[in-house]
Nucleic acid binder design. Structure first.
Lengths: 231, 231
DNA sequence: TGTCATACCTGATATATATCATAAGATTTT
DNA sequence: AAAATCTTATGATATATATCAGGTATGACA
């Protein structure tokens, strides 16, 4: 079960010099008073699509997925969020309800900051607001670019993308343990689970990767890059 | 050819009560001094992917498309922008170069506001910045939601979406003239030109629409909605 | 310890969609 | 006004991808 943590002060937070570098000590203290830090075990739901938005969410540790559920109760994954990624996405500021469900795909620590406090600080401090605008723009831009990218590629290119994504963006290593199932990969890059498995096997046969369950080892990054570029 | 217009004062602009409602007269005058209004004929390029960003773009009149060109010089349309839509998208604040090319698909008037002036005003005026953040969030959110939506639907659903989009979001009418070619529709909703044409024909045979070249008349909106919902 | 469910894997088949081919209007260019 | 080019159109074919079916392995759970 998720549990509320003994809250550490914002001064110690990884976000301090990132999202909050334009804030003075007084402002940080205000945020500190209006935040809650929660630990989630892998698989737990952090917030649900449709729920009222009362907080801005900072992912301090771990990995999460943003997803929507469609009528045919098929889940569709929008993106994977890592610390410093502004996991609330922008819907936080433009909508009353959460547009997406967020769940932990690794043990995670999320900080809930009351959104009214954040808005108040922005209204008072234009530099902070502008900085925040720039940072959140980047998140949305990335999501849009990624979605476009995935759509224009076919299956092999998409799998190549996902492997490169985990390798360079998330773990920064050639060998890593996939934090998601084949099914979740399928939901993320718009293809069937069977084909995710099939193409991973193809890559193995082609000598691009080594597979052992969730453990992936990239043997030939150049070749992977080429597959990606070809689409 | 595009031409610079005799600039009217920002007081008269449609954006004044929209994006600029948090600004006082002094700030508006500053913007007024640092803007240029340009008329573009249908088909002309407003800005190019890769160009340095120096201005925020307001579409005062007309209709534009945002697109990227891929290696195989195929064009991909990200979205259609109408007045009040923040056509610069968010890349304006997170990047140094334009991420997309923008071209006029109808005769258009675009206002170029120096971005440094805008940033300066935001830094000075938190309320303005926050307001701006909320409004631009909505644009990015819409694009993301639309892209996801299109991907999850198959051809008939996508064509239904496009017809509903022009009918309700752009023209607010059951009969309208498509401002784009079948090929451009294909580039916007990720399908082949031939299939765009084919499925429009199907819809005609099904009694959903009437077609006469670019003129479209929706005969049965309910049925169209049903096709859309089915995916 | 065994049963149940879930994740992985692979082959065969079905289906949606792209591509190719061809042709008749439109538009633009010369 | 003729030539050239683009858009719309439709049928035939190819192909990418999903679906279905049958496995084994893996982990949860009683």
């Amino acid at each position: 079960m998720s549990k509320i943590l003994n809250t550490s002060h914002c001064n110690q937070c990884v976000y301090r010099t990132w999202a909050f570098n334009k804030l003075d000590q007084e402002a940080l203290s205000l945020i500190n008073q209006h935040k809650t830090e929660v630990f989630y075990r892998k698989g737990e739901v952090i917030c649900r699509q449709g729920e009222n938005i009362a907080h801005f969410l900072y992912l301090r540790k771990g990995l999460v997925k943003l997803l929507t559920t469609e009528k045919n109760d098929r889940e569709h994954i929008i993106s994977i969020g890592k610390p410093l990624d502004f996991i609330g996405l922008l819907s936080i500021f433009s909508k009353q309800q959460h547009a997406y469900t967020i769940t932990a795909i690794e043990d995670s620590v999320v900080c809930f900051v009351e959104i009214d406090v954040l808005k108040q600080l922005m209204a008072q401090n234009g530099e902070f607001a502008l900085d925040f605008l720039e940072k959140s723009s980047r998140v949305a831009d990335d999501v849009i670019a990624t979605r476009l990218n995935i759509n224009t590629k076919q299956l092999r290119g998409r799998i190549a993308y996902i492997l490169m994504f985990f390798s360079s963006h998330i773990y920064n290593a050639m060998a890593f343990e996939l934090p998601v199932s084949r099914k979740e990969i399928a939901q993320l890059i718009d293809m069937s689970t069977e084909n995710v498995i099939r193409i991973l096997s193809e890559f193995r046969k082609d000598g691009i990767i080594e597979i052992e369950g969730k453990l992936i080892k990239i043997l030939d990054y150049q070749k992977l890059q080429k597959v990606y570029d070809l689409g």
